[in-house]
Design a protein around this nucleic acid. Structure first.
Lengths: 168, 168
DNA sequence: GCCTAAACGTTGCATGTCCTAGTATATTCA
DNA sequence: TGAATATACTAGGACATGCAACGTTTAGGC
């Protein structure tokens, strides 16, 4: 997206914020901005790894979720809850995965409102291959030291719990 | 988007990964997934704070950048580089901000290729008001302890530098 | 049993992001 | 000087996300 900047734009913004008189809020602002940017970088790496498989991150996440489900099938609303995305996003992903022959929709046996999503054989293979690619190309050299990984899991885990993602 | 889950879905995925035989990659996977989810939560908070101002995060970022620029004006490509987004994203944001009367395009005095984006008086007011709202509603209680904020800034700063965002 | 309220999935709309291609202008170099 | 190359911005398309509204189906209160 461009050549490296000579200085960290987020650190610069933090200094600006402090000069503006928002001293104690400059650090949280910088941390949050850094999270946004880091997500952007990681997403780009993931998408580029998945591209050869004809998958996007959203679709891969759904495949991976189904792959771990005991029966390889889940109701739409369950997938929405576990992936923490809007139901319309799941509808969108399932539409495309179904068109690619990786998942199939089927009616729920007892509840007429819900739709089950099921992995096809082709979908299961794609899920495994994509997972292997992500492991070797992204997670093996994540750009964080093992100690930092541990810190991130703790810090972000607490954040997500406080934000109401889960209880424990 | 739903009620809290009984268990942390990311911790669960990490356990699944370990059972699958990807032991040492499970932690980086969990950390990266947690960053994705944290970004999603923070973005939702920010968007909801900016909504009353008729702004999105992308447009706010551009306003804030212009507000800190010495002359309140920047070339498009400079904005693209500093915000680390694709040039077409800047075009999109400027289109909408211009329609709302918050910024104005003007030709570069010497280089006929480049377009300058300039903050209008209305735009400067909007930038200040939106910044105040973000400070009080998001950054004042970010959901991270001061110590964790410090760790995040360091960890993510190193990551971004290694990823080629900036040199130093 | 019936009728209202709630849940589920889908569609339409708005937004943002990136990619590819195209047009216009600058710069480089033979 | 003139052609080839590089740069800046824009147009159109693919994709993901969320909100609001809708039709269908189920559940609860009377």
């Amino acid at each position: 997206m461009g050549t490296p900047l000579s200085r960290d734009p987020i650190a610069e913004a933090q200094r600006n914020w402090e000069e503006q008189g928002w001293g104690d809020l400059a650090a949280p602002m910088a941390a949050i901005t850094a999270i946004m940017r880091t997500q952007q970088i990681l997403l780009a790496r993931i998408e580029s790894t998945l591209k050869p498989f004809g998958l996007t991150f959203a679709r891969y996440e759904l495949l991976a979720l189904l792959n771990f489900a005991r029966k390889g099938a889940l109701p739409m609303n369950k997938a929405s809850a576990l992936l923490q995305v809007h139901p319309t996003s799941v509808t969108n992903a399932v539409d495309r995965l179904e068109r690619a022959g990786l998942v199939a929709r089927s009616p729920h046996p007892t509840d007429g409102r819900t739709t089950l999503i099921e992995l096809t054989a082709k979908g299961r293979t794609a899920a495994k291959n994509a997972a292997t690619a992500l492991n070797t190309e992204v997670f093996r050299a994540p750009g964080f030291s093992p100690g930092d990984v541990k810190d991130l899991i703790r810090i972000l885990g607490e954040f997500r719990r406080n934000a109401g993602d889960f209880e424990e």
